[in-house]
Design a protein around this nucleic acid. Sequence first.
RNA 1: GCCGGGGUGGCGGAAUUGGCAGACGCAACGGACUUAAAAUCCGUCGGAGCAAUCCUUGUGGGUUCGAGUCCCACCCCCGGCACCA
Length: 815
Amino acid sequence: MEAEYSPRAIEKKWQQKWAEDKLYRVDNHSPKPKYYSLTMFPYTSCDLHIGHWYNYVPPDVRARFKRMQGYNVLHPMGFDAFGLPAENAAINRGIHPYTWTMKNIENMRRQLESIGTVYDWSREINTCLPEYYHWTQWFFLKLFEHDLAYRGKAPVNWCSGCQTVLANEQVIGEGVCERCGTAVTQRDLEQWFFRITRYADELLQYEDIDWPERIKIMQRNWIGKSLGAEISFALDHPGVEEKEIRVFTTRPDTAFGVTFMVLAPEHSLVAKLTLPDKKTEVEAYVERSRRQTDIERLSTEKEKDGVFTGAFVTNKLNGEKVPVWIADYVLLSYGTGAVMAVPAHDERDFAFATKYDIPIRVVIASPEWQGGELDEAYIEPGTMVNSGQFNRLSSQEGAKAVSDFLAEKDYGGHAVTYRIRDWIISRQRYWGAPIPMIYCEKCGIVPVPEADLPVLLPEDADFGLTGESPLKRNEDFLRTTCPECQGAAKRETDTIDSFLDNSWYYFRYCSPHYDKAAFDPREVKNWMPVDIYTGGAEHAVGHLMYARFFTKAIRDMGLIDFGEPFKRLFNQGIIIKDHQKMSKSRGNVVAPDDLVSSLGADTLRAYLMFLGPWEQGGDWSDSGISGISRWLVRVWKLALEPYRVKGKTGEQAHTDLQRTTHQTIRKVTDDLEKLRFNTMISALMEFTNYLTGVKETGRVSDSAWKGALKTLLLMLAPTAPHFAEELWQKTEQEYSIHNQDWPVWDEEIAKDEEITLVIQVNGKLRDRITVQASITEDEALWLAEESHKVEGYLKGKDIIKKVYIQGKLVNLVVR
RNA sequence: GCCGGGGUGGCGGAAUUGGCAGACGCAACGGACUUAAAAUCCGUCGGAGCAAUCCUUGUGGGUUCGAGUCCCACCCCCGGCACCA
């Protein structure tokens, strides 16, 4: 009797052997076709939980499958190591972020190794090491050189919890910090920006990539392209230089219905326009909106309010004077920060006008409109009325006609506006790559020369949260000399948003230790773009959009010749427990280390893939995993307990075995291609059950049996790498199973000889008969009508129609 | 409110193009083995009914010879966005 299946013993053994043999070393110069399989690298936190495994195991299985299929597979792993959480955790524990991060990485690497992943660890990257962030800084300089990085003052998102500025993409839900949940407020600050808006239009193009519809929609919404018109309103105000205020509208067809204008409270003209007797009220309103958090300010429940400035502008289209108000429902950051208010055709304007008793004039007639007053805003398209020469045009025609007219008269014209804002990358925190810029009194903003990179992050820092970078308090760091005039100068002390680190890591994997540049262009040409990228959907408008922007930006610098980094994107679901998200506070976290030591990595790998469709996630069940354990033990016995031919071997048993084997190869291969891991496991289980029956009856030759068993082990290898390797060795096959070819199927052999013909009467199942797959329509119909079970349903009725579906069914329609 | 995804046995989930609903597994129940239990093996397992048979994929309609699958209306759950002029 062979040894029992003991995962603990075999897993360690093989992991060591594979590492010694450098089995997973990726060769850059292989003649095989390349396949770049990328999984979003983890943020360095304390521990990997079962959710991480759910992210890493299925791609690992697929990468192993692709290797066996003959591809040269790059399936690397690394760590996203800079950023606020590490710094916060380090502060809380009173240790240095570096120490904390490196300790975590060590643990995470150990955990990732323990699950039997195929990563080539010689390619590991770590974003917080100088050999990496040297090039993050270099890219910053390149973006600056190409006018894609600039310093500017703008109202920015401020998180008082993290004491730093956040990018728009890091503000989530109703305006809270994605890291700490604190309500975000606005501050006017000088910051570094990346000009992602320059790529807004190109980012809307998805023709060349295979991405989930959902992610594309989220990005489209985030970019928020709106077509409309910009319209100039004449301003003639004592003591004010500006002679116009421009607004953006998506409804130029309503321009004759403007009865007031609203400026954002922060608009630069507010102070200049406000009449002396309105000053107190206006200033109080501006002050109040400045202090509100975005949650308060943007709450849709809040009643719209505002203040009249006392000023008027003239609508150039009809010569009417309309009052200028300020209100916080108008955002400075969108359009021109000013809107023309058309209360008859906009809900917000309607509410506002009703509240302050401002006239409401209908300029778009609905088909039902009789000329009376409106009870609510009519926002649908209609026919233009009260609009001078544009009357009787439809909204659509009118919008174009009005815009054309505006352009002709130089009153404005067609315009496009985006919701997306430039990417703020300054962080007033320690744990990040220093922004490689120098401020010189004489020369102004001077980039650090490339030769001086990296600008090292000093080890000693005082992490107290003050709202300013801790680097500012480090004199050795702060004081420097100007690269241009050699005079005394100061360094930029803010650090780079870690989203830049992870916007280019997949380029680094191609040549992870290259020290002459961020990447070796030949290796990038060899490996990029990524063939499949897998990870969580939460990165839809953050990381995934930044990475696309980054790739397009460096393409335009001539560094690469493609604009999309990830050909195919796939988002896995999340794994839950007892219908709830796993979290420490709920106490329902499944700890993988314990499961590995009790059940084994292979069992856990197979179970994670079995519990549900990968894109949907699934419900973790402690008892469910025992089904996988039992299955693997059954396979173990099937392979190791001797096979005995019983009686005469039969031709039929042999063809059956061949057919089932080839059908299983087809199913498993297809499921792996389509990332349908749960049904792949089912198919392997069915095949196991089938082989158990074959073994019991013993009607196939010893060699046929061995062949089928070998195929089963090969198909198991990606899922259960240690288990399959052990059985491969025990059945005296050549090491290593992971270097074998993936089995292929023959469509002819996989073909069914016999089929079950379904007989229906009026669409209801009445009989099934087993027939040759080659049956003709006439034979099938004849058999159906002759069926004993069907007889009763046909008695006394006329068959008015006979439906025959090749190889499937007969439906007799009777009356 | 808008945009995605989803709703199938006690549970997780299967079901190419509209063609045998419930694969595979868990749990449960019955049996074998055992002094006993665990493990293992064999069997049953959507509901009603003694049975023939009938009912059954969130609800209600529709198209079709035939609907889990397509169309219309609605309900519920999950995720995202939400004053964007």
